[in-house]
């Protein structure tokens, strides 16, 4: 059984994500998962077995904080170093339209493996646009509420109390999205090349045209501005 499609280097390929995007994506993956598992040790009402991996609850707390700072730095690197890409990403999310709605309506069928006809998508399809809105929002809330809980003495008590439910809600939403994103970006047969897009940076040209026709045409096809 095939887990993810084979990487083909001998066919025409087009760039999907630049180095900094990929570096920060995977940096965020590692730090987010570290924060998640160390945090779950507390959220799951004292999961001793989970805390034991990190050397007990004090150890898990330390790893949680170190990973959280690293995650903040990774996010900052992306925002500062890749500002143009960030703006392009936001602009793409704002193009949310009819084709994206059709995508989201039909997606549950494709999710289970049925063949469906999907209208042309921009760089990020309807589902990816949803993920692009929800996950970063949740992560921003996680970071803000996390620092408030870390340094409660310098914040008003009401804000510290509000940080607990916000941290938990954001964690659950972000983790929900990360589970789906992790699966859809790898083992889901429909995702095809998208894993290589984030791992190596390029995707097969024919895949790009088939899956993200609008993006492909505007960037590499007939409608490219000729950079």
């Amino acid at each position: 059984m095939q887990w993810i499609p084979e990487y083909k280097g001998d066919v025409p390929r087009v760039e999907r994500f630049n180095f900094l995007s990929r570096f920060t994506h995977w940096g965020h993956t590692v730090t987010f998962l570290l924060c998640l598992f160390t945090g779950l040790a507390l959220f799951l009402d004292s999961a001793d077995w989970l805390a034991a991996i990190f050397g007990g609850f004090h150890g898990a707390g330390l790893v949680h904080r170190i990973a959280a700072v690293a995650m903040t730095i990774v996010v900052a690197i992306f925002v500062v170093g890749n500002f143009k890409v960030l703006i392009a990403w936001i602009k793409d999310i704002l193009r949310f339209g009819l084709n994206d709605i059709i995508f989201i309506m039909k997606f549950p069928f494709e999710f289970l493996g049925f063949k469906v006809k999907i209208p042309p998508q921009t760089k990020f399809n309807g589902g990816e646009k949803g993920n692009s809105m929800l996950t970063p929002t949740a992560v921003i809330f996680l970071i803000l509420s996390g620092y408030i809980m870390w340094f409660p003495a310098i914040f008003p008590a009401g804000l510290v109390r509000l940080a607990y439910p916000i941290h938990d809600i954001s964690m659950v939403l972000a983790t929900f999205m990360v589970c789906m994103h992790g699966y859809l970006g790898s083992f889901h047969p429909g995702s095809g090349e998208s894993f290589w897009g984030m791992w190596k940076g390029t995707v097969r040209e024919d895949w790009a045209e088939h899956h993200h026709k609008t993006w492909y045409d505007e960037t590499y096809g007939d409608k490219a501005s000729g950079e």
Partner: peptide, 28 residues
């Protein structure tokens, strides 16, 4: 989310085998 992914992992592969279809379908 985890259970949904697991279900999809199985059904996508069952449906692909049934249709004898080895080309990658759909979208990510």
């Amino acid at each position: 989310a985890l259970a949904g992914s697991a279900v999809s992992f199985v059904t996508t592969r069952i449906l692909a085998n049934k249709n004898g279809d080895h080309t990658e379908g759909g979208h990510e």
